[in-house]
Structure formats: C-alpha cells, structure tokens
Design a protein around this nucleic acid. Structure first.
Lengths: 139, 139
DNA sequence: GATCTTTATTTGTTTGAACAATTAATGTAT
DNA sequence: ATACATTAATTGTTCAAACAAATAAAGATC
C-alpha cells in the first residue's frame, strides 16, 4: 500500500515534469503541447484526412477544444481544414507540408530534451517499466 | 529507444489519467486538485505553520498561484492565514480543524478510487516501478 | 542610517481549459 | 415526406494557469 502510493506519486510527478518541460521547449516556437500533439496525430495519418472527433479520441489529454486548437494551427498555416465530402457535418483536417517541416524541427528539439535520459534504462528495463504501469492499471 | 518512448508515453498518459480522474472526484466537493494538494501539505505539517513559498516548493505541479489557492481555501474556512511573527513578509498558513475533517472525507473518496488498483502490483513490483522511473530520470 | 538589493507575497493581465449551449447536417421512424 | 432524435463541430462563458509586474519588508553595504 505504501509502495503503491509512492509509485503512483512518482508516475504523476514524472508525467507532469515531462509535459511541463517539453511544453517549455515548444513554447519557444509558439506552439502549445496540445497543438504539437495534434500535428503528430495528423502526421501519423500519412496524408489521409481525419475528423475533429477522431483527433479528439487520439489525444493524450482529453482537451475538448479541438476546434480551437485547429484554429490556431490554421492561423499558422500548419494545417488545412475542409468539409468532408461524404458528410457535411464533419471536417477533414490535414497537415500542410509547411506543417510537416515545422513538426520535424519540433521533434528534433523534443528529442534533444529526451536524449540525456534515453540510455538511463536498458531496453529491458524500459519494457518492464511499461508493463508494470499497465499492470497497475489492470490492462 | 522505441521502448524508452513507449515507457515515457505510458508514464505521461497514466499520470494524466490519475490526476484527471481524481480531479473529477474532488470536484464533487468543489475542491480542485491543487487545493487538495495544499490541504495535504498543510496536514503533513502537523500543526506547524508553513509559508506560501514552502507550499509552492512541495507542490507536484509548479502552479505559481499559491496565494490564490489559499484564498479559495480561506473562503471555505479550510485554512488560516496570518502574518509570520518573525518575518512580516511571510505568511503562516495552517489547516483548520474543519479543514482536517474535510480532508479526511476527501482522502476516503480518493482512496476509493485507488482501491481497485492497489493490489494489481505486489509491493516488490511497485518498488521496482518507482525505482525504474527514478532511474529513468537519472536520480 | 540612507540607499540599494534581495526576498516573499500579492495583484494584474493574458491565454488556455472545461463545460454548456448552439447550430447544422444526418439518420430514423411512422 | 415530415417530425424527431442523433451526431459533429463550433461558439459562449466561466474559471484556473502562466507570467510579469508591483508592493512591501528585510538584509546588506557604504
């Protein structure tokens, strides 16, 4: 029970620390963490459009304002938004080539942040870590 | 590298999930997560007053607005705030007995949230988990 | 002891998050 | 086909977070 609490605390604290720090890095380029995540989701689509709803479902943080996040990305020319041809309620979002370039740059910076830590754990240890967290959640 | 990324992702996602869910539970009693954490810090003082600055230092999330959080807790009668006798710049914050009662209730609710998960890991596993995260951070 | 710096907290302001309500298109049932 | 319900996205509003600036006390220096 005590060890459970300590583990939980460590997870929360570390999670916050990573997102906060990465957030700082991204802010230098005037990008928020949610915006960054949307860009990554869009890149993962490999050109296929994705709706606002589906973006929502894939976000780590269940931030409800995907529309406004996309608004911001549109302002910066990082994404396109157009009506879905088969269902006029939906919006098809895609990343622009400029968006891909920017994401590339951002990814490099984020990777730089991670680089001092990447080898702190062996692959085996990292896998055990992942599995233990999943087990904790009952997955 | 791939396993590192997966581990990191799991940490972030799980951390968010816990704080979000606990946040929901607390909201039923009109308490935010930062307010709850301040209450816990105050309880941990066992009656000794603590300054705004020291509260700040012990918070998981480095929310800068401790003053305003304490304002809210004051409104609810959960804490006291008075000038530090030895240094008039500082403010001594203490938890009221009503605050302790409320915290007790909240802790029970939070514990209820955790109870399904507490035994998913053995003590040994939880300790390994904690150690691996610390090792990941280079601690 | 007057001035300058540092420390501790508070306050102002801007931005994002949360939640509810709205709009508009689609699906369904009679 | 019309009426009603559901789905998808947007918009409005409120509240908290972030950051900077301000206030005010204490400490340091000369």
């Amino acid at each position: 029970m005590k060890s459970y609490t300590k583990a939980i605390y460590e997870i929360i604290k570390t999670g916050h620390w990573i997102t906060d720090t990465v957030g700082q890095v991204l802010k230098e380029d005037n990008i928020t963490e949610p915006q960054f995540n949307v860009l990554r989701i869009l890149k993962g689509q490999k050109g296929n459009p994705i709706t606002v709803q589906d973006i929502q479902g894939r976000m780590i943080q269940r931030s409800s304002n995907v529309t406004r996040i996309v608004d911001k990305l549109l302002d910066k020319g990082l994404v396109n938004r157009q009506e879905c041809p088969t269902n006029r309620r939906k919006m098809d979002i895609t990343i622009t080539s400029f968006g891909l370039d920017e994401l590339e740059k951002l990814n490099k910076k984020v990777l730089e942040f991670h680089s001092p830590y990447i080898n702190n754990l062996t692959d085996d240890e990292a896998e055990i870590l992942e599995k233990l967290i999943k087990k904790l959640k009952g997955e």
